[in-house]
């Protein structure tokens, strides 16, 4: 293998790893798929270190120079700035990764396929609004809400989705987006339940909180700590505590204002 090829192969493996992490794959999955792809491209040894915001890979290969071969290393790093949960795309990236391992794929072909996955259209806004109305409505009922609570909660959820989209498009800081959305959510829940007799603002709020509160991240951070992914666990723990404090601040402030 020549250095140029090696860098190209490693680059493709890193791109697959980056996409896996970006669409909500866990750290161990990223490390595993980069290692497997590098092995199938013919690297002798691959060391991957991945945390939620960065991937570092060093792969070693034998370079042939006119009959004699020397052992060479190449290293690449990748910074991940934001992640989202998109399990359709994660599934596609995962099957791409599997197909590279089972039969040779040109690195350029891999990068083109990743770009294709990135550009896949998302659901239209009205459908998304329905989905983001259904989730808080379901959790309002889960915590004991009645029919009036269900409707108000759904309406609040749909409005909050539009607000969050707007703020994210302007690419504000994630904590700021969460703060504004939870303040708005609390205000909407309290104001809309003022006029209706048997509505419970607290239950409507808690239904909408479930969309913003990082409960999954919090629980998974403890799992990471238990399985030895200490750095990832600590990062996620700190992020989820901070975010949940901000969400609580928003909803609590709204309840105090009104």
């Amino acid at each position: 293998m020549h250095r140029q090829d090696a860098e190209k192969y490693l680059n493709a493996a890193m791109a697959v790893g980056e996409a896996t992490l970006r669409y909500g794959g866990e750290v161990s999955r990223v490390e595993d798929s980069i290692r497997r792809i590098c092995t199938s491209y013919g690297f002798d040894r691959t060391d991957v270190f991945c945390i939620t915001s960065s991937i570092i890979t060093t792969a070693s290969f034998a370079q042939d120079d006119e009959g004699s071969s020397t052992q060479q290393n190449c290293t690449q790093t990748c910074r991940i700035s934001h992640t989202e949960n998109d399990f359709d795309k994660l599934g596609q990236v995962n099957s791409l990764s599997r197909s590279i391992c089972s039969s040779y794929k040109d690195p350029d072909e891999v990068l083109a396929r990743l770009e294709e996955i990135r550009c896949m259209p998302e659901r239209p806004l009205p459908v998304q609004m329905l989905i983001y109305a259904a989730v808080p409505a379901a959790f309002t009922v889960f915590f004991g809400g009645n029919a009036a609570d269900l409707l108000i909660s759904g309406l609040t959820g749909a409005i909050l989705l539009c607000l969050r989209r707007r703020l994210q498009e302007a690419s504000f800081n994630a904590l700021f987006v969460a703060l504004v959305c939870s303040l708005a959510g609390g205000l909407l829940a309290n104001m809309m339940s003022l006029g209706i007799q048997d509505a419970h603002a607290a239950l409507i709020s808690i239904g909408n909180v479930m969309v913003f509160i990082p409960g999954v991240k919090f629980t998974n951070s403890i799992r990471d700590l238990l399985t030895g992914e200490t750095i990832t666990g600590l990062i996620c723990l700190a992020e989820s505590l901070l975010l949940s404090a901000v969400v609580a601040l928003g909803f609590a402030a709204a309840a105090l204002i009104l």
Binding site: G24, S95, V209, M210, G215, V216, S244
Partner: peptide, 22 residues
């Protein structure tokens, strides 16, 4: 034929202590 991660996250959501954390 999908990764288990996604399913695991969404199926455990009713139990996740989000409300308690809040």
């Amino acid at each position: 034929r999908t990764p288990a991660t996604g399913l695991l996250i969404v199926t455990s959501i009713p139990m996740i202590p989000g409300a308690a954390l809040y």
